[in-house]
Write a protein that binds this DNA or RNA. Structure first.
Length: 264
DNA sequence: ATGCCTCAGCTCCTGAGA
């Protein structure tokens, strides 16, 4: 079973690339972030024609998330939008229960999330990010009790440590790299979850995002901010986790690359 | 260099991203 996450930075711009990627990578779930489209304009027809369905939760201009699954499998159930108990005007989280393709009774709770950017420490947006992270943790604690087999994947907008940063000295304490943000990431791990990417040997300087400016991708000046956390109950089934840099080489690419998780 | 790219939109500039 394969799951993936990809911040596409506008689905209307990236739809052809998403369809191409799905054709080459027929995953069981693809979580999208920054779809930047309202639900009535979501490209359901084009996806259906290609053999996919989508559960979408979007808004105009910013944010927006979706879960894409194959039409050949039973539809996801028990969909939840955003973080229950946390009032949020922004479309950032979509959650659903997905059947295992070979063992339909082995269901998986999949949370696709677009974490707030946070702009800079000391700003209102940073405070919002901290409140959002606290609410996510409180909700996930309950969600894990109900659904021990859980995957949290998406654009976290946080690096785990300096290994995830191309210039850890120059970027120390800046957004995505503050101890406060990393503390929240550790707290999520403390709920009984594991960074699937680091379960495996990875090449040095593995990143999932590169700035559009200054030829950052070509120079591999990036950050690893797109993550897949797997619950303890799921951890023994993790077979691989990798970043697919290929779509970042497309013409007019997203600034993020997909991250793919393989489960037994 | 509060910039450099990219995207959306009350679109020929601005806000936001990260």
């Amino acid at each position: 079973m394969k799951l993936a996450t990809w911040n596409v930075n506008s689905l209307s711009v990236r739809l052809p690339q998403v369809l191409d990627w799905l054709a080459a990578n027929p995953v069981d779930v693809l979580a999208l972030q920054e779809t930047k489209t309202t639900d009535d304009k979501f490209p359901h027809a084009a996806l259906n024609e290609a053999g996919w369905r989508a559960a979408a939760f979007g808004q105009k201009t910013y944010n927006g998330v979706a879960l894409i699954t194959p039409l050949g499998q039973p539809a996801p159930t028990d969909e939840v939008r955003n973080i229950p108990g946390f009032t949020d005007e922004l479309a950032r989280v979509i959650t659903a229960t997905v059947p295992h393709p070979e063992r339909p009774s082995d269901t998986l709770r999949v949370v696709g999330a677009y974490f707030p950017n946070g702009q800079a420490p000391g700003t209102d947006k940073f405070e919002y990010k901290m409140s959002w992270l606290r609410a996510l943790r409180d909700w996930l604690r309950e969600e894990l009790a109900f659904h021990p087999r859980l995957v949290l994947m998406g654009d976290y907008n946080i690096t785990f440590d300096d290994l995830d940063v191309w210039d850890p000295v120059g970027l120390a304490g800046t957004i995505h790299c503050t101890e406060e943000e990393r503390g929240h990431l550790k707290a999520l791990v403390g709920l009984g979850m594991t960074d699937a990417f680091r379960l495996f040997e990875q090449t040095e300087k593995s990143y999932s995002w590169w700035d559009y400016r200054e030829f950052a991708f070509r120079r591999n000046r990036g950050l690893r901010i797109d993550h897949v956390l797997v619950s303890d109950a799921l951890k023994p089934q993790v077979q691989a986790c990798a970043i697919d840099r290929l779509p970042r080489k497309n013409e007019r690419p997203s600034d993020h690359a997909p991250v793919v998780l393989t489960l037994a």
